[in-house]
Simulated assay, not measured.
Amino acid sequence: MSHRKLNPQKQSLTVGDVARRSGVAVSTVHYYEAKGLIESTRNAGNQRRFSRDVLRRVAVIKIAQRTGMPLAEIKASLDDLPTSRTPDAEDWRHLSEQWRGALDERIRCLIALRDQLDGCIGCGCLSLKSCPLRNPEDVLGDAEEGEASPSVAGTGVPGR
């Protein structure tokens, strides 16, 4: 792997520069661009060139992904940022305020799931009639007799 230093006078970055500097694969840079999360221009040789602010955007994307946020939500948040400059601390405060509620809800759901797991350890059957993990709020109990049973916990194993 090459560790060449970027010329500080360089006005744009290649896809390889972005990947190396941000710690993601080149394919990830292409994917983010295809999804509209970052933008590039093309030089005379039709090669992608990225402005330096894309490094901050990739960092924000990586942090948001670590919270479990879907790329569509990340894109919607990034679309609110100005494209003419690098996101700054105020932009980050704005983004983190937007994401806090969703992250709090995700944490609440994970804690509830964790707490429900304790009840399943003794049972082990993943009963389709009463399992709070496989059948929340007993929605399958309302199914009429003779309907096909779904698989246990999405494993493809027929229900009991």
Results as ranks from 00 to 15, higher is better:
66 R>V: 09
92 W>F: 14
101 G>S: 07
141 G>V: 13
152 V>F: 12
119 G>Y: 09
141 G>S: 15
139 V>I: 15
59 A>V: 05
87 P>C: 05
84 S>L: 00
113 L>N: 04
67 T>R: 05
112 A>D: 06
23 G>P: 08
41 T>G: 08
46 N>S: 04
3 H>F: 10
118 D>S: 10
106 R>N: 10
147 E>D: 10
157 V>L: 13
12 S>E: 11
145 E>R: 08
3 H>W: 07
76 A>K: 07
150 P>D: 01
99 W>N: 00
13 L>I: 01
17 D>E: 12
42 R>Y: 06
98 Q>P: 00
2 S>A: 06
83 T>S: 12
56 R>L: 00
110 L>Q: 10
91 D>L: 03
37 L>S: 05
82 P>W: 12
33 E>D: 10
13 L>T: 06
39 E>H: 14
17 D>I: 08
151 S>M: 00
91 D>M: 04
154 G>C: 07
97 E>K: 02
120 C>T: 01
57 R>H: 00
28 T>Q: 07
89 A>P: 00
38 I>F: 14
52 R>K: 07
36 G>A: 06
140 L>G: 09
21 R>D: 01
39 E>T: 15
61 I>L: 10
146 G>M: 02
156 G>V: 03
14 T>R: 13
2 S>D: 13
147 E>P: 00
119 G>D: 03
32 Y>S: 03
26 V>C: 02
18 V>H: 03
38 I>M: 04
71 L>H: 10
13 L>N: 01
73 E>V: 06
117 L>W: 15
3 H>A: 02
98 Q>T: 15
133 L>E: 06
147 E>R: 03
55 L>M: 02
130 S>T: 15
87 P>L: 04
116 Q>M: 10
125 C>E: 15
49 R>M: 05
156 G>T: 11
117 L>C: 11
22 S>N: 01
20 R>C: 02
40 S>I: 12
155 T>W: 14
62 K>V: 14
26 V>E: 08
23 G>C: 03
52 R>L: 04
92 W>R: 03
82 P>E: 03
2 S>I: 04
87 P>H: 13
136 P>S: 09
95 L>W: 12
98 Q>M: 05
82 P>V: 05
135 N>C: 03
37 L>G: 08
146 G>P: 05
112 A>R: 02
153 A>C: 10
57 R>G: 00
136 P>M: 07
25 A>E: 01
123 C>R: 07
122 G>A: 13
36 G>E: 02
135 N>R: 06
16 G>P: 00
16 G>D: 01
5 K>Y: 13
130 S>Y: 11
18 V>F: 11
124 G>H: 11
141 G>W: 06
59 A>L: 02
62 K>S: 13
127 S>V: 05
48 R>L: 03
83 T>D: 11
68 G>S: 04
63 I>R: 07
46 N>P: 00
143 A>D: 03
3 H>R: 08
87 P>Y: 11
88 D>I: 03
62 K>L: 09
104 D>Y: 09
3 H>P: 00
90 E>T: 15
137 E>L: 01
51 S>G: 09
71 L>S: 06
84 S>P: 00
154 G>E: 06
21 R>V: 10
121 I>C: 03
99 W>G: 00
159 G>K: 05
17 D>L: 02
62 K>I: 11
122 G>Q: 04
149 S>D: 01
68 G>W: 10
138 D>Y: 12
93 R>Y: 10
115 D>A: 09
19 A>H: 06
68 G>R: 09
72 A>E: 11
148 A>H: 13
